[in-house]
């Protein structure tokens, strides 16, 4: 097995995905098949190969420190499920 139910539960928790027991069972089965295939590359000897994170060479892109146009608070809040006093409102945290 490339991945266990316990690991799937842990990963789902890290990703903030609530799963039912039936889903844990199903996803474990499916992810196992996928990781089995994807895992083919784990055993390759690539110690001398540099990694590529981007296909084109990238360096920091700077701009002038000047105020540009940006969203108004009303626009920024227009899609929020719940707002309060120009802020996003969420359920209690503690």
């Amino acid at each position: 097995m490339a991945i266990s139910e316990k690991e799937v539960k842990h990963v789902a928790w890290l990703a903030r995905l609530g799963l039912t027991d039936a889903e844990v069972e199903k996803f474990t089965r499916q992810l196992d098949v996928i990781l089995e295939h994807a895992g083919k590359i784990s055993s390759l000897d690539l110690a001398q190969i540099p990694p590529t994170s981007h296909a084109i060479p990238l360096k920091n892109v700077l701009r002038e420190d000047r105020v540009g146009t940006c969203l108004t608070p009303e626009d920024a809040l227009s899609n929020a499920p719940k707002t309060e006093d120009q802020a996003f409102a969420v359920p209690r945290i503690v």
Partner: peptide, 11 residues
Amino acid sequence: AYYGQAQKVRT
């Protein structure tokens, strides 16, 4: 084992 290797395969 996964992400690191995948980026090297990309190279």
